[in-house]
Amino acid sequence: MKKITFFSVMILMSFLTLSCFDQSKPNYQFFPNMYESVGYSTYQESDAFANGIEAQLPVDGTISRGWVPYDYPDTNEGYELAKKELLSPLEVNDENLSKGKELYNIYCAVCHGSKGDGQGILMKREKFLGIPSYADRDITEGSTYHVLMYGRNLMGSHASQVNAEERWQISQYVISLREKLIK
């Protein structure tokens, strides 16, 4: 009888130690008040504001540091105007092109293909259809920047992912890809 109780206690204990960590919950902490300080962390839930989140939208009219104003409106006319007259402030050099290539491969190649021929992986897997080759479209650096800024048709705006300088670097690389395709 003693043996049975001894073994059952052992099994129960090993079970307890093994099942201690519930994967869907974070583990215990030593001194939690040092791990999580009193200050709010980003996106934390909080009743300090009306909508219950710590992160708030900037006040209307706020301009972030390094923000460059962009005057062309998000309309067909704005697009045509940007295509016609908007020029890149960056000079064409290897540094900008290599940076542009790096960013292009992260943000654009998945649809437009690493060569700009519209044969990205999402196109090949038929998640998107009808992505044109850059060679078939009459695009300029200005129009590419405009589309990156606002998006066009099914392509969404990428302004939240890349800043103004990076958008210009990508545009420069896109035009270099187009020139290679046309040749």
Binding site: T17, F21, K25, N27, Y28
Partner: peptide
Amino acid sequence: YFAYGYMMQIGVDQGYMPV
């Protein structure tokens, strides 16, 4: 040995997989 092992995994969230 077991006490050490138990203490050392406190505050470590390896394998944490929330819903």
